[in-house]
Design a protein around this nucleic acid. Structure first.
Lengths: 200, 200, 200, 200
DNA sequence: AGATAAGCGAGACGGTACGTCTTGTCTTCTT
DNA sequence: AAGAAGACAAGACGTACCGTCTCGCTTATCT
């Protein structure tokens, strides 16, 4: 994508530089459309038009429409669900689950559900999603669990992976499967149950 | 569409009857294609050609390509993940989770993941999925939980919904999110944890 | 009635028959545009839109835009420059030259000049032009020359090819090269000169 | 265009001087491409790439691609068909016709046919063609005719325009229309006929 | 038996989107 | 100031797919 210069600058920047304005407009337009309709109902020309850009420019920087939509999400979802901030590590884990539930119910959450749907069957996109979106969040959750273990809130032998999946899996399940709402009461109950299970 | 049987049925069915052969071929072709590629890479003409049928016939019976693919799945996935069969209700719940994990790793599971992905952003399709595929399975799981409660294996106040989501949510999470494999050890651990949590 | 014999004849006309309406509209639209601008300023989509047809339909029947324009001309220029009708064979040749000049100055003539221009460098198109447009006219001119020889108006050893090129070449020259108008006085003078040259 | 170098003003001229190298390369590249394909198959980027030049440079000096191709021809065709050199004015006219035929069969002739084709429907280009390419040659032919009249080889009342068109028209006709080759025998026969017609 | 009615495969249709290509302009850095 | 590189908007290219339609045929039931 970009960056590339980095290191030793193999060949400065010949020619007209990429319009960052255009890039921003495209991602913004993509996100706007994602709020309205699912990925397969969005066309490259719609994005281009909405962004005031030619389709050629769009395709110069992204191989496929899907990658545009994906990057648009990443850009906007920099925040994503907020990790817990207050209290002990255990309380912060609990808060994280509640924040995740809240985020899933938000517009961003709805948009992200569409992206996750579109990822099924495209391994490259899935790898991107895991690496760029999910992995960092998972990592911070893992740290929190380890802190909680260190603080004596969780059993010493606790498997962090298992705990995290037990904590967020049920929320994800309702979010994507849609059989029931991801409300606060549910998030609270799930977090209580999961944390109690591994509590000292 | 037409009146079909419905109300007063003025007279069975005049004219040539629908070719069940065609219907079967279409669904089979759709499923075959689903095994190879994600829904958005499958075209109505591919299905029709593979089935040796005209697109007109396809569209006579299904409004959209997506509904064909969806129905093709339902047809084939009559089985889906098998519920537990042996032992106490609790053991059967545990077995159900393991069977689900096994099914998620199977070809059927991979196909279904694509369908669930395609469902995001199409509420009608999601309703169909929930009503025709998910609800019956959920219902049988709920019954199992109630039996377990009645048998004294689970706490009297156990919330069946919470337990089921705690039991299958983490599996679903790994299946769709893809951050880790849905292997047997994981299924076993999750089932143990969830059931222990609500055990008497 | 069709009779059709029923025997082998597997071909017949399967499927929806080609819309002759569409074909006509496309050729008409192409011709309309040719009156306004040169071939390289006409786009396939313009033709399609003007014809109220999709570009797919256009490309289904013609490989390239140029072939559409060419066929549109042939269709319309069924008439082309009229051969002489009255008087002796020699007088008819003279009249033919004058009619050609008149036609070259007409709208049809201007359109045809564009087609002939577009033919340079595309041997396939040139062959089509020669075979379908030019050859029949040349043939009738040749006949006329032979009649004139038989009638004793022209020298017995007259080379028909040479005479025809001498008669129409100068008109064609001014028409395509454009250094002077192809007016009636010029056509008359050329015809007089050419015919006198080979006169008995 | 621009002031260009003008006579002897290599002096000050702030900034980098125009690369005459670039101009030459562009025209050469354009001509090279013209030998291979018709004008409408040649793109501005092809010319630029072949010339090792940016398209911006190309467009700085020429308004359109067509003008580049046109000028490339003019540059190379400085020679064009050679006028007759030896003998009486009449003999030189005859030789001119034969030289024209020879040139039409040459590579230059084939390239020029494409340019003339491209000129149909673009009046500005046609004017350029007439003024810069055709007019000088026509003028020298006219002079030759007048000399022949003065020398008594042609009838006193001979219309030079008519004679020139009668002499070169048939060659042009075969060249552009393509119904027969512009061979030497034909050129010879046409020249004989035309000159005899107006001979004293 | 004949009429009526729906289903069928083939394939053309108008429409829309695709992703690429071309045109001529513009921007930045280099010479 | 000119040039090279190359990004840009605009829009045409020719193809693919969508969902509909027309056609000639087949297969049933109803009269």
């Amino acid at each position: 994508m970009k960056a590339k210069t980095a290191t030793a600058a193999p060949s400065k920047t010949q020619g007209r530089p990429r319009s960052d304005e255009a890039r921003r407009q495209i991602l913004e337009a993509a996100y706007t459309l994602l709020k309205e309709k699912p990925t397969n109902a969005i066309t490259a020309q719609q994005i281009a038009e909405e962004a005031g850009v030619s389709t050629a420019t769009l395709y110069r920087w992204w191989k496929t429409k899907e990658k545009v939509l994906f990057e648009a999400c990443l850009e906007r979802l920099k925040t994503g669900p907020l990790p817990g901030k207050k209290g002990s590590p255990g309380a912060r884990l609990h808060e994280s689950a509640c924040n995740s539930a809240k985020w899933m119910r938000s517009e961003s959450g709805r948009v992200m559900a569409r992206i996750i749907g579109g990822i099924q069957g495209d391994e490259e996109l899935r790898r991107s999603y895991l690496a760029k979106f999910y992995a960092p969040r998972r990592q911070s959750q893992r740290r929190l669990v380890e802190e909680a273990i260190a603080a004596g809130e969780l059993k010493p032998g606790t498997n962090p992976e298992l705990l995290i999946d037990a904590l967020f899996g049920p929320l994800f399940f309702r979010w994507i499967n849609g059989h029931a709402p991801v409300d606060q009461a549910f998030a609270d109950a799930v977090a209580n149950a999961a944390l109690r299970m591994f509590a000292r």
